[in-house]
Amino acid sequence: MARKLVSCTVNGTKRHYHIDVRASLSDMLRNEEGLDSIKHGCDVGECGACTVLIDGKPFNSCIYLAIWAEGKSILTVEGLNDVKTGISDIQQAFIDAGAVQCGFCTPGFIMASIPIIESDKPASRDEIRRQVAGNLCRCTGYEKIVDAIEKTQKKRIAERKSSS
């Protein structure tokens, strides 16, 4: 089957892959990079467990062809782990709020929440729910996930205000 060269940035590093044109982005990142935070819960874009950021926007990587990633910048949960400073505030907020149970949906939820916490417009709890509506969790009832996102967004807005 046809293969194609794909060049993209993954978690800040420029990468080149010679990839089967039929492969999904999630398969490419799991198989070629070992980015196992990307989970497959449905393989058809229903559950959101494979959510990654592509040029800053959340996508279901299971239904995003790997070849479409040409020239794009991709961020996964592994890219939030800083070797020097440790984990990011949103990851810590998930831990502190008790937003993690089985953990299978957790990386996808964290990635889906990044546009919310990076926005200057404060989001209500209902707005947070709407923005992560493409992600499913069967363990938490979403309550503590919304808590973690809400808290981190407030913290980020306050930080930006105090530094500006």
């Binding site: 196992d36 949960v77 984990i87």
Partner: peptide, 20 residues
């Protein structure tokens, strides 16, 4: 007490069957 497995699960280090 914070969950003993929460950090592994928020960083993608936790290995599930499909990761092994």
């Amino acid at each position: 007490l914070k969950r003993v497995d929460a950090k592994e699960k928020t960083t993608g280090q936790a290995k599930y069957t499909g990761d092994l």
